[in-house]
Computed example of a mutant assay.
Amino acid sequence: MIKAGIIGGSGYTGGELIRLLLNHPDVEIDFVFSTTRAGKPITSAHPDLLGVTNLEFTGEVNPNVDVVFLCLGHGNSSKFLNENSFSETTKIIDLSNDFRLKADATFQGKTFVYGLTELNNEKIKKADYIANPGCFATTIQLGLLPLAKAGLLQNQVHINAITGSTGAGVGLSSTSHFSWRNNNVSWYKPFTHQHLGEIGESLDSFGNKTGQLFFLPNRGNFTRGILATSYTQFDGSLEEAQQLYQEYYKDDVFTHVSAEPIHLKQVVNTNQCHVHLHKHEGTLLVTSAIDNLLKGASGQAVQNMNLIFGLEEAKGLQLKAGVF
């Protein structure tokens, strides 16, 4: 059994990770660390786990676990690792943005591998440290990677994406409060979102020129999921584009190209990404959808863990969508 530790288990991503690992046949949760809930039962933060687990949050860290998941706010993972040491054999999977960019990837003599499985599958298998991608970044990259690899993103790319309220984290803010969010939609961080850096590095990793990315993120009045629409100039036929995408994702267990238009309910509560292509005159429209807490965070983290430990990639991640 793989012994796992979770740092920061009371938030949305931590809660999803606990649920996944409790049901993973090859994993045993050794500890769930929390500075604010030490000594309290896991169910005090996640009441849906009543009757599922008797685990309690702890204020102590076991440095000898096989894998540690960092479910901390951005900027806090590097601080935590500077203050706490783990064994040389402990694998670390970070869900913040602290180590995603190449300039930040080297830490304490170790290099974090960018954990987008559809891009870095073989590198992840050999990695000790993983930087889990951002949720918007995952959705958008999975919509554009086949074009980037083929050198077909030389023109401007316009991206519009909408995310559920869980993307803002468990802490209350003026724009996550129910009375503000309900029956409401708004944009934020237009053209400057922090995920643009990691998106750009991934698209450029094939050595082909990428045009300017114009990204407009939106807040939706629903709980979870991301739907992204990206469009750019494309001179080929729709059939050629579909063949390109099918070929790129032929070996990927969670990313699938749909012949029909897609919607969020297909992927929410799963680790799936669904992609749909539409051609209008000289423009290709790519729609991609994921669950921001699973494929965009905790599910992808478990997928990375499976690859690192030589397990079946989809193990513990065969989840059911709530379509109705």
Rank of each mutant, 00 (worst) to 15 (best):
K3E: 15
I7W: 03
G8D: 01
S10F: 00
S10D: 04
G11A: 08
I18F: 01
R19N: 14
R19H: 11
L21K: 07
N23T: 12
V27C: 15
E28P: 00
I29P: 05
D30L: 05
V32F: 04
F33M: 11
T35N: 14
A38D: 02
A38M: 09
P41D: 10
I42D: 02
A45C: 14
A45L: 01
H46S: 12
H46M: 09
L50W: 05
V52R: 06
T53R: 08
N54K: 12
L55F: 04
G59P: 09
N62R: 01
D66P: 12
F69Q: 04
H74F: 03
S77L: 00
K79Q: 10
K79V: 15
S85G: 10
I92E: 00
L101H: 08
L101G: 13
D104G: 02
A105S: 15
T111L: 02
F112R: 04
Y114H: 14
G115W: 03
N120T: 13
N120D: 11
I124F: 10
I130R: 04
N132E: 12
N132G: 09
C135Y: 05
A137T: 12
A137D: 05
T139D: 10
I140M: 03
L142G: 11
L145H: 03
P146V: 10
P146G: 00
L147D: 01
A150T: 00
G151M: 07
L152N: 02
L152K: 03
N155F: 04
N155A: 14
I159S: 10
N160G: 11
T166P: 05
A168F: 12
A168V: 11
S173E: 10
H177K: 15
W180A: 08
N182C: 06
N183K: 04
V185S: 15
V185E: 11
S186N: 12
P190E: 09
P190A: 14
G200V: 05
D204I: 10
K209P: 02
K209V: 08
T210W: 00
G211A: 05
Q212Y: 04
L213W: 00
L216I: 15
R224M: 06
A228N: 10
Q233K: 14
E239N: 12
E240I: 05
Q243I: 06
Q246S: 13
Y248I: 09
H256E: 11
V257C: 09
A259F: 08
E260M: 08
P261K: 11
I262C: 03
L264F: 01
T270H: 01
N271Q: 06
Q272I: 00
V275A: 07
V275Q: 01
L277W: 04
K279M: 12
G282S: 13
G282I: 13
L284P: 06
L285H: 15
T287P: 08
S288M: 04
S288D: 06
A289Q: 03
G296K: 02
G296F: 06
A301K: 06
M305G: 14
E312I: 15
A314I: 13
A314M: 08
G316V: 07
G316Y: 02
L317P: 11
L319V: 13
A321K: 02
A321E: 09
G322W: 14
V323Q: 13
F324D: 14
